[in-house]
């Protein structure tokens, strides 16, 4: 059981727990939503949770490498959103609806 002291002293594990909760929300979004755009947003949520854990580790170990890694994650997230939204545009043009179940019929 967590003692009162561990609830009052905000340390690394609190930020990591918050990050884990946000990550699991993103995971539920990817698994349960049918709209491709909302699924992409859930992926962004997961990437942000990972960024939060990077920053927390960076702060509590006084090591700036974690912040550099967050830069890279942000860049790759932007790239991934661009490609994913382009594919969503393609699905909409073919089927007039952005449902994930049309994904497998998207040939070429």
């Amino acid at each position: 059981m967590p003692s009162i002291e561990s609830l009052n002293q905000i340390g690394l594990n609190h930020y990591l727990a918050l990050s884990a909760i946000i990550f699991s929300f993103g995971m539920i979004g990817v698994l349960m939503r049918k709209n491709v755009i909302v699924m992409l947003m859930s992926i962004e949520l997961m990437l942000n949770a990972v960024n939060l854990s990077f920053i927390a580790f960076s702060n509590f170990t006084a090591n700036l490498n974690g912040q550099i890694m967050v830069f890279f994650v942000m860049t790759i997230a932007a790239a991934e959103a661009g490609v994913g939204l382009a594919i969503a545009v393609m699905i909409y043009k073919k089927f007039k609806e952005i449902n994930i179940r049309y994904f497998e019929q998207l040939r070429g």
Binding site: L12, N13, M27, T61, A62
Partner: peptide, 24 residues
């Protein structure tokens, strides 16, 4: 998803990477 979150939080419970000593 709840299992993933719970497992991670259970792992993080005992993390103490310089939580008092080092800080930016």
């Amino acid at each position: 998803a709840a299992f993933v979150a719970g497992y991670l939080i259970g792992t993080f419970k005992d993390v103490s990477v310089g939580s008092q000593s080092a800080s930016l």
